[in-house]
Amino acid sequence: MAHSNVAPANGPLDLSRLHGQVVVVDFWASWCKPCRQSIPWLNELKARYGASGLTIIGVNVDAERRDADRFLRDVPIDFEVLFDPQGNIARQFKVKAMPTSYVIDRNGKLVATHLGFRDAKKAETEAAIKALLDAPVH
């Protein structure tokens, strides 16, 4: 399955179950300041496109779970969150910056990697995701 080029099936993050969906995997942490801005926006994306086939998965890389929980009280997340305190998933995805998000198309192919978060790029990224949602599945 094509998803294996991003994350192995049966790994902590098994993307093969999401075949046919456009997937955004977002790495975040409580200490990462841009994440406070990116997460509400990802919530919005999920609200707008969730029904059309967009799945967002947040991967938290805080070493201490209570730091993540405190952040979640301030900034609630409306999508699935995995906790990766050892950084195993982050290592597998070769995360280069915080936050990093990976966009995977309906065929399981990694199509974009976004390092950091900039307000100015929101419209462009959203348009790209919308195009992926409209693209056919093989």
């Binding site: 942490a29 990462c32 805080d62 070493a63 990766d84």
Partner: peptide
Amino acid sequence: QPWEREVLA
């Protein structure tokens, strides 16, 4: 690693 910069941040 980038995901380990909790204290440095």
